[in-house]
Every structure is written in structure tokens, then in C-alpha cells.
Design a protein around this nucleic acid. Sequence first.
DNA 1: ATGAAAGCGCTAACAG
DNA 2: CTGTTAGCGCTTTCAT
Lengths: 339, 339
Amino acid sequence: MSGQKKKTTIYDIAKELNITVSTVSRALSGFPAISDTTRQAVIETAKRLNYSPNKLASALKSGQTHIIGVIVPSLQAHFFASIIHSIEKGLKGSGYRVILYQSNESLISEINGVKTLLEAQVDGIMASLSLETDNVDHFSEVIKQNKPLILFDRVHEKLDVPKVILDDFKAGYTATQHLIDQGYKNIAYLTTIHQIPIFSERLKGYKAALADNDLPLNEENIIFGGLSIKDGRFGVGKLMRLEHKPDAIIAADDFTALGAIKKLKEIDQVPPKIGVIGFANEAFSAYITPTLSTIDQHPNQMGTECVKLFLDMIKDKSAHNTSTVIIEPSLMERQSTLS
Amino acid sequence: MSGQKKKTTIYDIAKELNITVSTVSRALSGFPAISDTTRQAVIETAKRLNYSPNKLASALKSGQTHIIGVIVPSLQAHFFASIIHSIEKGLKGSGYRVILYQSNESLISEINGVKTLLEAQVDGIMASLSLETDNVDHFSEVIKQNKPLILFDRVHEKLDVPKVILDDFKAGYTATQHLIDQGYKNIAYLTTIHQIPIFSERLKGYKAALADNDLPLNEENIIFGGLSIKDGRFGVGKLMRLEHKPDAIIAADDFTALGAIKKLKEIDQVPPKIGVIGFANEAFSAYITPTLSTIDQHPNQMGTECVKLFLDMIKDKSAHNTSTVIIEPSLMERQSTLS
DNA sequence: ATGAAAGCGCTAACAG
DNA sequence: CTGTTAGCGCTTTCAT
């Protein structure tokens, strides 16, 4: 035999000390009305018997798992990895833990995620929607169960819950204005076909900036495709076949911008000859050549705000919190737009 | 009132249909000896009452959570994010889910992670050790509980469990041989002070390749520091103050290699003038300038192998599996070493 | 300060 | 094919 099979429970501790499980439970959980002697004995015995609490049982009984489910489109994007990191950091000391679910930009997978997390009895959910998510009914069960739900970055208006978002309009506006300030006059825009607000807001910001600067809006300049390195290349290909070729390109994320740059280099239009700016300030953006101008979305700040909202909601379950925290984007000027 | 407070349980379904919970439980779990009529009725009622199983209760009773805990140093490294991704992919359809824990390269945090996962009653653990981990006692409890433990990439010899690793010796050898083949003769090596096998094996490979090519080993050329962009810059600074300056640099990871390249560009020794090669084939490595030669560690293959091992162990708990799966590294030749 | 006992939601051995 | 019943390990109210 390689040691006893069964794990030690509070019953074992109780038996060992000739007291009851209630006393053990109290001693272990810091209940005040327990004599110091007893508490010491319990703690010592627990250690000696190598006791490890079964959180499952505790959660089943108390109805609280102290686990928060976080749904993100993908961990491969540094942006989301950073948010996760700051959420975990912010939660430190609160007793809450995070369990992660990746939707891989798929609606079906996201629906499954909500279901799984709910079945796992998480105490709340933080989510950033997939590109495919045009319907958010799958979140209604979270609300029905009266569990905190917080949306961040990729949100949906139909969901009347607290949100942490970037000022995406401003982000789009800032990127565009920056290009205009650099002397670019015919600015193209590569974005996604998916109708999710974050991207349409940025596009609105782009249009507004053009208008404010008395620059014409050329619909041909707006390419609706995917978001990836490949799509960036593809988009540039399309743009370069236009009669009136653009002199600058805004890509809805840094991956797409990277693809655009690669293609531009191949056709000898190396930025900043044609300006390129992206969104998200990905890990690579400062290191490619030319370095990529982009909009920083402050993931750490986003994570921190999510945690703040969550802890508030836990504290005051009754208050129907629907506040929206808006993060200010920052322009990162780099070589790809410095003409 | 915003609807009933309590969640529906199998009791509610049973009451609704005038049957017992056991029947409901069986009907829901696909138990064969249940009449089709009953099963249909149960499923229909479950749907109507918006039933969602409480996995906690089921796990408590059955002793199985169907959750695997995965411990990684950091999600910010694309390498680990990829492994996670392939683990989840490999697990699809098996009924197992992953919960993630980041050690942030800290031993204390890693110890905490094991404890937390065990308390959460995970069915097994897959782990890649932190840089600080020089002692692995915290994993003994996992083994004692007879739960599958699998180590990947960053492993430890003291742990007699199945492992999935890169052939790190070969990786180091290959990188070195490649530089030699390219005509470099005085090759430096930037690595970590931490004594973890993955890095010492690579270093051994480096030394062996030098010896096999009758090249002298110059201890001054080996810098023991940290692994980061900053450390890469710092390492180059140190190397450039040597009397006999190296003409190529191996960095123990791509981040360090990136830092090295940045510094070299500043002092006008742009690779491949001084060759630079890294390890891990990070997301940015193909896109920086010059593009970074590196050793691909096949994270997807690693994840897949981990899953395979895990499922085997679950299937056959008795067999003391201690097999080690060794992944072959691949050289990615890029501009930074092509002289 | 401590004990007794009920029960969280589910599973499964045993009966019928 | 279905019901009865006993727990999984813990928390918590009500006693004492």
C-alpha cells in the first residue's frame, strides 16, 4: 500500500481530538467564539494529518465558489492576456479566483462557455464577446441567476450590465487625426465584416475626423474583411488596385496592420511612405520594421476596472449597477506614420 | 419579484412528473434502463424548467470534477498560450475541461497554484515549472492523491512522472551548428542564472557543438542573467566590452534575442553582421527586422502529447506511467543569421 | 465555547 | 423499469 487511500476530512480531525466537526469547521474558518486552545489543536492536527479542504463541498453548502468565470475570444492576443493578468492581480487578496474560457471568436463556443461556467457554479462572469456574437441571449441566464455579469472591450448594447470599454469613437478619431496631421490625405480603413460596436465606433470616429478636416469620405477606401495578418495583406492588395490609391491605411487591429505592412514592403511602398496605424499595441508592434504606430487600449486599466465593478456588485447585490467605465485610448506614434 | 429565486434541481423535475430523483438522474445521464417515454418527459421538463445541472454536487458525489488544472509560468508568452490552446483542442469531446493557473515565474505562486487546484478537486494537473522552481515537494501531494500529474517543457528530474519535453540538448546543438555553418566562429550565449534543465541542456548542446567543430569554448562568452528584452540588451552590452568580441549570439529565448538585436542595431552591428538566434519562435519573431532565426519548440505537438498522456493515465490508473515524450526541435532560418 | 443535526444537489447500491 | 436510501464533505441554525 502506498499510504491511506482516503483524504482526510474535518471528521478525521474531529475524531482525533474528540470534538465535533462543527467545532473543527469553526476553528478552521476563523469563527471568533472558539477557544484558543481548541483552535490551536485543530490547526496543528490539520497540518499533521495533511488536511486539505474540499472546496467543492464547501461551495455546495454555502452556494459560493469564489470563482469568477472569464470569457475571452483568444489568449493568443496579447491584449487579452494582459487583461487576464490584471484581473488576477486585482483579485489578489479578495479570495476570488479566475477560471478562463476561450471562445476562439466563435458564438457557439461562447454559448457553451457560459453554460459550462454556470454549471461550474461560478459566482460571476466577465466576458468579452466573440466577433461572431450578434445575439446575446445566452447571457440572460447569468442575469436571471442574479450573478454579476461584466462586459469588457467587446460589449453589446442589448445587455444592460456594467461595462468597461475603450472610447472607441475617440480611438478611431485619434488615429485618423494623427494621420491627417502627418500630411496624409486619402486614408483607407481595413475592418471586419462583423457588426460589433467596438469596430463600428472606430469607423465612426474615422468618418468624423475626415469630416472635421474637410476631407472627402471615399467608400471605396473602406474594406470589410477579416482581421489577421493575411487579411491585412489582402486588404492592401485590394486598395492598390483602386484608381485613386490611398496614401495611408488604418487597420482595425495590429495583426491586420502587420499584414498590411508586409505587403506594402513587398510592393516597395514601405511605411511611412504609405502610412499605417493599427489598434491594440500588441507585443510585436514596437519591434517590427518600421515600428507600428497604434492605439493603446490600456488592458491593465480595463482589468482593474472590471475587478472594481465586480467587487462592488458582490458587496451590494441589490443595487442594479449599469455603469459604464470608459477608458481613454492613447496614441502610440511610431515609425509607420511618421512622414 | 424578478422571477423565482431558487434554481431548478432534479427534485423539481421529479415532482413535476411524479417520479423520483433517481429516475430523473438516470434519464439525464443516459442510463440505458429507462423507458423512452420517461426519458423524453424528463428531458422536455428539464428544458421547460430551464434546468442546469449543478456540477459541484455531481462532482462531490462522484469524486470526479472532470477538470484538469494547468499551471504555466505566464500566458504572455505565445509559446504557452499555444500549448494551452492545443490542450483544450485535444480535450474536446473527452468531457474534460481546463482551468488555468499562472505562476508568473514565481515558486511561491506555483506552490499556491498546486494547493488551489487540489482544493478545487481537479482530476489531474499538467504543469510547466517556474524559473524559480528548484524544489518540487509541492507536487508530492498530487502524486499522493493518485492524481495524474504531467510535466511539460520545464520539468524536474526529481519528479517521477510522465513528461513532454523538447530535445533541448539537440535544440542548443542545432542552433550552434547553424551559426557555425553560417561562418560564425566566436559564439556567445545569453542564458538564465536559474538551474532549470531546459536551459542547461541547451547550453550543453552548445558546448558539444563547439567541441565537435573544434571551436574553443570561451567561458567569458556565456552570460548568466535574466530572460527578457532588457536582459538581452544588457547581455550584449557586456559582450561588447570583451576584448575578443563574439561574432554571434545565442539567446535562451526570443525575448532576450529581441533585446539583443535592438542593442546591436543601436551600435551599428545589425544582424546578421553579428548573428543572433533565439528559442521558442514567438509571435513576433518572424516580423521584426531583421527577422529572427529561432528554434521552434512545437507547442501544439506538446499540448497534444500532454492530452494523450493524460487520457492514458485516466484510463489505466494502475499503470505507473513514467514515459517521457521527446519533441524534436526545428530550426527556423531567418535573416538574423544569414550571412 | 461546543455539540447535534439538517441539508446543499446529486449519484448509485440495493430492492422491488 | 423505477423507487428507497444513504451519503459525498462541509456549513450553519438551534440548542446547551
